[in-house]
Computed example of a mutant assay.
Amino acid sequence: MSDAKTLPPALRGWTEREVGCISGVRDASHPRASSRVWELERADGCRFYLTISPSARMYERETFALRHAAPALGAGRAPQLRASSAEHLALLTTAVPGRPVNELPLTAAEEYEAHRQGGMLLARLHAAGDLTGRWRAEAEEALDAVALGTDRHLEEAGDRLTPAEHALVRRLAAELRIVGPLPLGFIHGDAWPRNLLWSEHAAWIDFERSRFAPVAQEFVRMACAVWADKPRLRAACFSGYGRELTPQERHALTCLAALDAVSALTWGETHGDPFVAARGRRTLDRLTTGVFA
């Protein structure tokens, strides 16, 4: 394993105090400046991942998830937290078998099974954790918080949207506030193929956006980025999940997709990512023609 990105000496020393001498280091970061992840290997072949969170909030979320919710997925279905350092915003976790499903040459049957098991694991995750006190309050207020950002997102989008699209997004954001009580749970927050691993079974990784929220929020990325082209994977996910979304949840998902589309279109064009921008544009087109849900 090569040292493609230098691991800070202080972090290497901390890691070796936790798990022993490291014989190999590989840069495993995503292709963005804020991503700092290394795959580590001991001489005995045991592998670990060291992640520096982009922010204190993400560090707190992932630490909480790995301690209190992810274990509900079962052995080998999520990373195990070996150590964490608030000083460095660092998390040291075990490696999970498999590779992201979007990187694998899966057969149709294998892809279906990966997404079915992914849905099954999300159902376990959503039922995990203690949904009381401030956690319940935050979950109940989550949709209002999303809707409050509408004006800022539309201002940033500017003339990337037509006047009719601006009006549509504003209407759906307003409806998001009155959609009614929805099932709540502990969501992964970034559930899509990049974070769904597959080998002999499925596993979820990267919990830095996890939180208590309406569970319908879990499915925005999949609905916007995957299910439009592969509706059978939607069926697979909810087969594993054990239920379909309620009518209120489906409407909330449509409203959330509109806000995600504006954010994706703006971010993609601003950061030179045509794939993210195209996802946002396509979602807006689907919403405008009424074929999203």
Rank of each mutant, 00 (worst) to 15 (best):
T93I: 13
A109H: 13
D151S: 06
P31S: 09
F212R: 06
H88V: 08
W198D: 04
G119Q: 06
I22P: 02
E249D: 03
E141Q: 13
L182D: 05
A167L: 03
A145E: 15
V101I: 12
A69W: 00
T94D: 13
V25S: 09
L11M: 13
R160G: 06
G118H: 08
F275S: 06
R57D: 09
D144C: 04
L11G: 11
R99H: 04
L91F: 00
R250N: 09
L154M: 02
P181G: 04
N195M: 01
T15I: 00
L184C: 13
G13I: 01
T289W: 04
A216Q: 09
E156N: 09
R36V: 00
E111H: 14
E103L: 10
S199N: 02
G45N: 08
H271T: 02
L245F: 00
G13Y: 00
K230V: 07
R243W: 09
V179W: 07
G189Q: 08
A127V: 13
A213L: 06
W192G: 05
A225M: 12
G20D: 11
F48A: 05
E16P: 05
A277T: 11
Y49Q: 03
R47I: 10
F48G: 01
V96L: 06
L7M: 01
A261T: 01
E87D: 07
A65K: 05
E155D: 09
D130V: 15
R134A: 05
Y49W: 11
A147D: 06
A70I: 04
A261M: 02
P193V: 00
H271A: 00
G45Y: 03
S239L: 14
L154C: 01
E39T: 14
H115K: 01
R250E: 10
V226T: 12
G98M: 10
A191E: 05
P183G: 00
G149I: 06
P31R: 03
L7S: 03
A236F: 10
S210F: 03
A95F: 14
L176D: 14
A225R: 10
H126Q: 14
M1L: 14
T289I: 12
C21Q: 15
R32L: 13
R26D: 15
P105V: 02
C21E: 15
A127E: 15
T15A: 01
H68G: 10
G129E: 07
G290V: 13
E87P: 00
A257S: 12
E165Q: 15
A4C: 02
T132V: 15
A137S: 07
C255D: 07
R42C: 13
E208H: 14
D130N: 15
S55Y: 08
A213R: 05
R209I: 04
R36G: 04
R124F: 10
A108Q: 08
A43V: 15
T63N: 12
A261D: 03
T94N: 12
F292I: 11
A128F: 04
Y241E: 05
L196W: 02
S35T: 03
S29L: 04
L233E: 05
A69S: 08
L66D: 06
D285V: 09
A164V: 07
A69N: 04
R243P: 08
A174N: 08
S84A: 12
T289V: 13
G185Y: 00
A213T: 05
E165G: 10
W14D: 02
A128T: 06
P9V: 11
H271C: 00
S210W: 03
